[in-house]
Design a protein around this nucleic acid. Structure first.
Lengths: 222, 222
DNA sequence: TTGACTATCGTACAGCGTACGAGCATAGTA
DNA sequence: TACTATGCTCGTACGCTGTACGATAGTCAA
């Protein structure tokens, strides 16, 4: 049967609905707050019902990660390669900032899902068409992905979200931990950072454009 | 009393011994295999004894991360800035490859430990002394750390360790998942990668040197 | 009517982090 | 010597986790 269940937002379970709700829960409560029982509860179902759609929690996490990859824009065709790669990298950062738990999950999950593969194919295609030799495209791929993931990881571990919070935290929490004679340079940096404000999106672009510019001459011309 | 306990390798507990053994366990069994009970067992102690040295598991994980940072070489003084940064980045990659669980833990732990702070101070000092203006040094720091962490993250999620395993896995696992008409570029890359071999250490150096070279002209000369 | 198949879930179990408090050895004090 | 304080260890118990197993009920074909 496919009619009313007693839960609130209901229209029958499905793997998709389970995974989407799991992502919503992880976004709200963090990945540690995601348990099969809580997830089932949010879906108005019994805990064990989930196992009809998902073999175990590992598979659920894999599926969640792949949905995250689906959210990332593919590099658009029809522009120069740098614009295309910038576009997809910026999108990736945004998506990973929206789902901070995803980055921490990647270490433990080793087999890429279909969306992940499609993404990699599109990126590699873009680089190859731009004139990068095969192995150079691989290098570029590693380099760009490292930057994107690493940036997302650092951003996820920042304890603040806005420039204001940064200023407050710096004054109240960081500086007291940093005796100026032991950490003169960190004090200097903190002060400069508060004065200048700090937008992760801009910070991201700085490194990204630097990498893209440095990669450009490595194409086999065209 | 400070004499014999019934456990095997014993000479009294201490926070240091607890943390070190926790790292050993996480290295061997993965961070999921690290439970307070198992850790206590490995130390020949009762589970609750650990809580005399550690407020809770979170604090234990924080301490483990900080020990990992202690293992990373500081940028040596007395060489040019690029050599110094290369040295510490290579060391960081090695250490994170040795403790793959660490990278996945960083997302959730927001307050840096003392070894982490000392490390950041040393890196910032190196950049400032090399002539980078304050904000440029911050940019360089973000960029380099992003690359290091992101590379470590990708490396940790590789399901193989050696070039041989790569070749085997490619043939047996990856290529069957990659129909050539849907993934022509990934097939091409996989083939080239198997033919060329693939050493993560070399791969790492490629991107690292590219970044260092691109950063060099951003110093306020000297 | 029968049986297979799809979907849901209750119960139970082993293992988790840890609150609470009891227990013991030693050091200091009277 | 007796008493107390302190440092350290740990047994028990509670509420949580993932999930194995089996029961249940609705649907459809024969």
């Amino acid at each position: 049967m496919r009619k009313q269940r007693q839960g609130a937002s209901d229209a029958g379970l499905s793997k998709q609905r389970v995974v989407i709700e799991a992502i919503r829960l992880a976004d709200c409560e963090g990945v540690d707050g995601l348990s099969m029982r809580r997830l089932a509860g949010a879906l108005g179902a019994g805990a064990m019902s989930l196992y009809y759609y998902v073999a175990n929690k590992e598979e659920l996490l894999d599926a969640m990660i792949d949905v995250v990859f689906e959210e990332i824009e593919l590099p658009p065709e029809g522009t120069d390669w740098q614009s295309a790669m910038r576009r997809r990298a910026v999108s990736a950062r945004q998506v990973l900032a929206r789902h901070p738990w995803a980055i921490g999950l990647m270490e433990s999950r080793t087999s890429p899902g279909p969306a992940n593969l499609r993404h990699r194919e599109a990126v590699t295609a873009c680089l190859r068409r731009a004139g990068f030799p095969v192995l150079m495209a691989t290098h570029a791929n590693w380099l760009l992905d490292s930057y994107v993931y690493g940036f997302a990881l650092q951003e996820a571990s920042l304890p603040f979200d806005t420039a204001d919070e940064l200023a407050n935290m710096t004054e109240d929490v960081f500086l007291p931990q940093l005796p100026p004679d032991e950490f003169p340079y960190l004090n200097e940096s903190a002060a400069a950072l508060v004065a200048a404000g700090c937008d992760p999106a801009e910070e991201f672009i700085f490194g990204l454009d630097l990498i893209l510019a440095a990669l450009d001459p490595l194409r086999a011309s065209a």
